[in-house]
């Protein structure tokens, strides 16, 4: 029982630490005292510009994006009662990618690319959930299969767009597809969505715990299943769209973070949801720091790092758990 009480403070501490590391590391490395000086309102002017205008906004954007992705994954896994569900498996990010690539091809600015990504994610959600709903009931298997097939369709469309694109556009497109935070400068919209969603989802936590036992059991225990499922679906779509708009397609965070937390903490959503927000944030902040320092001055797409970290960790946890 003491475990849940300890987890959130530990994660909060780790969150602060990860943000500290992210602002301290870079082409001009700063000592902890220099970093602290800037964060408490002092420090040298060069350090202030470096941290407050470049590194801190990016670190905050990474944190919020990671938190959003992990929360989206956690919610979708309960909605589908399948631990493999995540925004990427369900084709949401594929839709976003097609939107983004189309607007890049049209030569539109970054703001339009973000808008198109957002629209693409929502469109994909509508297609997947609309088709899976069909005339019958909303079975998780059908939803998952529809998502996987739609994702494959988006994948083909993405390849087509890459094939017909001028070579000058290709690097930007590939970076976007692998997830990239170097264009994320205003972290606040993502933070607002993250905080609001966690606050909205927390009181639903116990209902989600019951929904994880199946819709009939949930209805028998007093949960209004249909409204709850639609809420989950809407929130997950909004959260994913926001995350994809910030950073392009970053894979694995939504799949791995909630799963890892479940292996350690059990499956109480009242704990898993806030813990996912924090742990997802920590993971992506550290991954992005690695992405921009590992082969500096060149930058790696952050999605490469999350995949390279995530896959072995996930396989190890799965192997160890049984």
């Amino acid at each position: 029982m003491s475990r849940p009480a300890l987890v959130l403070p530990i994660l909060l501490g780790a969150a602060g630490l990860s943000l500290g590391i992210a602002v301290a590391l870079g082409s001009v490395p700063l000592t902890p005292t220099e970093t602290l000086a800037v964060l408490t309102g002092g420090g040298e002017p060069l350090h202030r510009t470096l941290i407050l205008e470049l590194r801190l906004p990016r670190a905050l954007a990474a944190f919020a994006t990671g938190g959003l992705l992990a929360v989206a994954g956690a919610l979708m896994q309960v909605l589908l009662r399948n631990p493999l569900a995540d925004p990427y498996v369900l084709g949401l990010s594929g839709g976003a990618a097609v939107g983004a690539l189309l607007s890049m091809l049209a030569g539109l600015g970054m703001a339009m690319v973000s808008g198109a990504a957002f629209a693409g994610a929502l469109l994909s959600t509508l297609i997947v959930f609309g088709l899976a709903h069909g005339t019958g009931s909303w079975t998780p298997t059908r939803l998952l299969l529809t998502g996987v097939v739609v994702a494959a369709g988006w994948g083909a469309f993405i390849s087509f767009l890459l094939a017909i694109s001028p070579t000058t556009e290709l690097p930007g497109m590939l970076y976007w597809l692998m997830g990239d935070l170097s264009h994320a400068h205003s972290p606040w919209p993502a933070w607002i969505v993250l905080v609001v969603v966690v606050l909205v989802a927390m009181p639903l936590g116990r209902s989600l715990n019951v929904l994880a036992r199946g819709p009939l059991q949930a209805a028998a225990l007093g949960v209004a299943v249909r409204p709850l499922e639609w809420t989950l679906y809407g929130v997950a779509a909004l959260v994913t769209a926001t995350a994809v708009t910030m950073a392009g397609s970053v894979g694995f965070v939504g799949l791995i973070v909630p799963h890892m937390l479940r292996l350690v903490l059990g499956n109480d959503q009242r704990l898993i949801l806030p813990a996912s927000a924090l742990a997802g944030g920590i993971l992506l902040t550290l991954a992005d720091t690695l992405a921009r320092t590992l082969i500096a001055p060149q930058q790696l797409p952050v999605g490469v790092i999350t995949a390279m970290l995530g896959v072995p960790v996930f396989l190890y946890l799965l192997y160890r758990s049984r």
């Binding site: 009662r81 631990p83 994880a212 036992r213 199946g214 225990l221 499956n267 109480d268």
Partner: peptide, 16 residues
């Protein structure tokens, strides 16, 4: 009984 996620015996009784 649909047991999609791991849960303990006590947690399962408590959802009542």
């Amino acid at each position: 009984h649909q047991d999609g996620f791991p849960a303990t015996v006590l947690e399962t009784a408590l959802i009542g």
